[in-house]
């Protein structure tokens, strides 16, 4: 009985995941793409829960579907309407090459996994209830992986400083295309 329920949840989550990923790539409007990425991240969190990674699933929803996607939606709203027609101009050599490269990449991953781990992945070892809990993760972060933890904080600080520098109005406000003096009025330079 529990077997069937786990399979059902897995099928729904996996197909929602792949379907929303396809939607992200194929929507013309970036706003819809970002909204479907939220669905993708949510269904991935369900898959993480099935793999008994509770803390990672919670962090996924909080950090990704919460903070990162809100920032994405704000920037898309700030940029205004920039519709990008996805498959304009028919199949060019670039599109054909991209499809071939992505297909080759996927075949390569599947073949390597099949060669390296065929049969051995079917029996997952038994784990205790503490596996993936915030307590276990926190202990590992503060003992074995303390360096990674500290480096992560420096990376986040550098990204925050970089975001402020890139987003500030202080320099480079002059337009490079002529005839956009009307548009320039929207962004007065800081003094």
């Amino acid at each position: 009985m529990g077997n069937v329920v786990v399979w059902a949840v897995w099928i729904v989550a996996a197909f929602a995941c792949l379907g929303s990923a396809t939607a992200v790539v194929s929507f013309a409007n970036p706003y819809y793409s970002a909204l479907s990425l939220i669905g993708n991240l949510g269904s991935l969190a369900v898959l993480y829960l099935l793999l008994s990674a509770e803390f990672v699933a919670a962090a996924q929803v909080l950090v990704y579907a919460g903070a990162v996607m809100v920032m994405f939606l704000f920037v898309i709203a700030y940029l205004g309407r920039h519709v990008d027609t996805p498959w304009a101009g028919g199949p060019s050599w670039q599109a054909l090459g991209a499809v071939a490269a992505a297909g080759a990449l996927m075949v390569e991953i599947v073949v390597v996994i099949g060669l390296k781990a065929s049969g051995r992945l079917s029996d997952a070892p038994d784990i205790t209830a503490a596996f993936g809990s915030p307590r276990a993760i926190g202990e590992l972060f503060l003992t074995d992986h303390l360096l990674a933890f500290e480096i992560t904080s420096i990376v986040l600080l550098a990204a925050a400083v970089g975001g402020v520098v890139l987003g500030s109005h202080a320099r480079g406000d002059e337009p490079t295309t002529p005839g956009s003096t009307l548009l320039q009025e929207e962004v007065p330079p800081l003094r």
């Binding site: 990923a21 929507f27 793409s33 970002a34 898309i76 090459g97 499809v99 990449l105 996927m106």
Partner: peptide
């Protein structure tokens, strides 16, 4: 995971909008 990676790679190579 392999399918997700391939779909993402396809999007990176095919789309022209930097947001997508």
């Amino acid at each position: 995971a392999a399918f997700l990676f391939a779909i993402g790679a396809l999007g990176v190579m095919l789309r022209r909008s930097p947001l997508i």
